[in-house]
Amino acid sequence: MLFGGFVLLPIVLGLWISLHHWDYTLPRRPFVGLDNYRNLLEPGSVAFEPFWNAMEATGIFTLFSVPLLIVVPLVVAMVMNEKFPGRNFFRAVYFAPYVLGVAVVGVMWRFLLDRNIGAVNSYLGALGLPDAVAWLSSLPAAWVALVGVTVWWTLGFNAVIYLAGLQDIPTELYDAARIDGAGRWSIIWNVTLPGLRPVTMFVTIVTLIASANMFGQSFIMTDGAPAQQTRTAIFYIAETGLQNFQMGQAAAASWILTAALMLLSLVVFGVFRARGAMDVS
């Protein structure tokens, strides 16, 4: 019942809507077959460029944010796993931004990163660095800003998961490695990382999906600027469906995005399984 109502029905309905010119405020919702998909996939149509532009933006964002969000939290987690004074305080500090909503994060950074009146450029200038970077309205600075803010915002979440994973690795393994005379790096490479594989796979897939669904940051911070270069796929879908009331087109776009994401997840699964198989052999 739950599965049917909240999972199956929306999927089928989405597919159904994507085959229509579906403006839910109008009585006429003509069936158009695959026209919505054709519009999105055929070069030269009005929808083609904005949509693929948005897909490209999502791709760029994912490409840069996912590796950073896998590696940086891992390093943070390993440091936080050591024993040192004030450890709990630092753990809290790294996790803190994650409790903020995207609206808070977006508006705050929008002001901090403003090219002409923002604090970031002002401090850069005080340090004698270039102080005229248009963080929110030029490329590639806007991507640096969006990825940077996202890493700052969500790294705490991934770090906490890594930390839990680290604490699950039995201490005997470390002891054994040390007795065998392994050095610090060798222990990380041969004990810590393999022990974290299931956690890393989880983090990778969750981060991948979260990044591919990025919307709020660019909606609030850059509003897609410059032009529509930082308008992501979800941004495009939301605008098309909810603002322009072209639900059919938006549903079709969602299906294309979903297909791409499923493919990508399969690839990630494949990579991790292949590596797992190698280690066992």
Binding site: R115, N116, I117
Partner: peptide, 15 residues
């Protein structure tokens, strides 16, 4: 200036 970000012209005016 180049690249005046959202609302910056107005905030700058008030300041």
């Amino acid at each position: 200036p180049e690249n005046v970000d959202i609302d910056a012209q107005y905030v700058a005016f008030k300041n």
